[in-house]
């Protein structure tokens, strides 16, 4: 995108046939982008409803959409506080993951010795499935909330660490030379060169970590149970399944999905706001 010297946009009085066709396609695509997924959703719910009613499926096998909706309203006083609890655990784990991941990444890039010594263990922590570690954490960490938090943190912090580490190292070499020539201090280099270079990578890691923090929180609730966070969404779901209350189970499941979508949308928005002025990934192609 180049600014015209006089700043005046070029006006096309008439579109030729090809351009008109392209504009038409664009308009159709714009509408389809929203209508098609919505249509799929409506049809799926309809099929679900018909399958349950015509097949007379008992509600403890598969509750119909109306029952789930009804439970969602009826049990809102249980579900809403549960969502807050799970949400709090997720957000707290994500925040700590950002602090820990970025902090370690900065330490790693400032000291090669630190990276060589500790990076392998960060990888081991990441590749060991958290479900396998969670029961141990429950045994050794006395405070159940801290144990749950630790579970979610372990899952969420690695993508931030690894992405930020790569990002901090990805500064343009010539720019780095320029900083050397102008006698930049270590802090100036980090603040004005490495950090902005790392930002797109960090935000990519944040998007992944947001989803993982929720997964970690759900796993923690499953394994550690209500002792940890009180009755979160995942604990509610588990408890509902014990009581064959499948309407509530589905309602809780839907809310967990909604939380995941909201977190992803939020992270994408943060990423866009931080990058849209200058980074290639946020630019619209003309």
């Amino acid at each position: 995108m180049t600014l015209a010297q006089d700043g005046a946009p070029v006006v096309h009085p008439e579109l030729d046939a090809e351009e008109a066709a392209r504009a038409r396609t664009e308009r159709v695509m714009k509408i389809a982008r929203w209508t098609l997924p919505s249509l799929v959703m409506v049809l799926t719910i309809l099929a679900w409803h018909l399958y349950v009613t015509i097949g007379e499926i008992p509600h403890y096998i598969l509750p119909g959409p109306t029952l789930v909706a009804q439970k969602m309203v009826e049990d809102w006083s249980i579900l809403w506080p549960a969502m807050i609890k799970t949400g709090r655990l997720t957000v707290l784990a994500l925040t700590l993951a950002v602090i820990g991941g970025v902090g370690l990444a900065v330490a790693f890039t400032q000291s090669k010795w630190a990276e060589m010594s500790f990076f392998p263990y960060a990888v081991i922590l990441q590749v060991t499935p958290v479900v396998a570690v969670a029961p141990l954490i429950q045994i050794y960490v006395e405070n159940a909330f801290v144990a749950a938090l630790l579970c979610a943190w372990i899952v969420a912090f690695f993508p931030i660490l690894s992405n930020t580490t790569i990002g901090l190292k990805s500064a343009d070499h010539n720019l780095s030379d320029l900083f050397t020539i102008y006698g930049a201090t270590k802090w100036q280099r980090l603040r004005y060169l490495s950090a902005p270079s790392a930002l797109p990578f960090f935000l990519g890691g944040l998007k992944i970590a947001g989803g993982l923090a929720l997964i970690g929180a759900v796993v923690a609730e499953f394994v550690i149970g209500r002792a940890g966070t009180g009755l979160g969404l995942a604990s509610t779901l588990l408890e509902a399944s014990y009581r064959f209350n499948f309407g509530r189970l589905y309602a809780a499941l839907i809310l967990i999905s909604v939380m995941g979508v909201v977190i992803f949308a939020l992270m994408s928005a943060i990423s866009y706001l931080a990058l849209y002025r200058w980074h290639e990934s946020a630019l619209k192609r003309e």
């Binding site: 010539n174 102008y182 060169l193």
Partner: peptide, 27 residues
């Protein structure tokens, strides 16, 4: 010293004036 490389080597996240400010900023 002032240096010009084969590539413009500007900081893409900084406005034009901030890019030119850089040598002073580092001082």
């Amino acid at each position: 010293l002032g240096v010009v490389f084969q590539e413009p080597t500007l900081m893409p996240w900084a406005r034009v004036a901030d890019n030119v400010w850089l040598p002073f900023r580092l001082r």
